[in-house]
Deep mutational scan, measured.
Amino acid sequence: TTLHFDLDGKKLQYTGVSEEIARLVEELKRRGVDLKEIVRILEELLK
């Protein structure tokens, strides 16, 4: 799965993300978590 974000005018793309992580990101968005925080979490998970 590939995730795309537009953060402060920067286009971020994460490829090869598992379905689980993609679902987690969608859930965080639904809960109103700040996009910067979501990206920070995502980068930690993908290390």
Rank of each mutant, 00 (worst) to 15 (best):
T1H: 15
T1R: 10
T1S: 09
T1F: 15
T2D: 14
H4M: 10
H4I: 14
F5I: 07
F5G: 00
L7Q: 03
D8C: 04
D8W: 02
D8P: 02
G9W: 02
G9Q: 02
G9K: 02
K10Y: 10
K10R: 10
K11V: 09
K11H: 15
L12M: 08
L12V: 15
L12C: 05
L12E: 03
Q13T: 15
Q13V: 15
Y14T: 00
Y14I: 04
T15C: 05
T15K: 08
T15E: 13
G16T: 03
G16I: 04
V17Q: 01
V17A: 03
V17H: 01
V17C: 02
V17F: 02
S18W: 02
S18M: 04
S18Y: 02
E19W: 15
E20D: 13
E20L: 05
E20A: 12
I21G: 06
A22T: 08
A22E: 08
R23Y: 11
R23T: 14
L24E: 15
V25K: 00
V25S: 03
V25G: 01
V25Q: 01
E26Y: 15
E26R: 13
E26K: 10
E27R: 12
E27C: 13
L28Y: 15
L28E: 04
K29D: 07
R30N: 09
R30C: 04
R30L: 14
R31L: 08
R31S: 07
R31H: 07
G32R: 05
G32N: 14
V33K: 06
V33H: 06
V33P: 02
D34T: 10
D34Y: 12
D34N: 10
L35K: 06
L35H: 10
L35A: 09
L35R: 04
K36L: 11
K36A: 11
K36S: 12
E37G: 05
E37F: 07
I38F: 01
I38R: 03
I38G: 00
I38D: 00
V39T: 03
V39D: 00
R40Q: 11
R40E: 07
R40F: 15
R40S: 09
I41M: 08
I41Q: 13
I41R: 11
L42A: 03
E43N: 09
L45N: 08
L45A: 15
L46D: 02
L46R: 03
K47N: 12
K47A: 11
K47E: 08
K47L: 12
K47F: 14
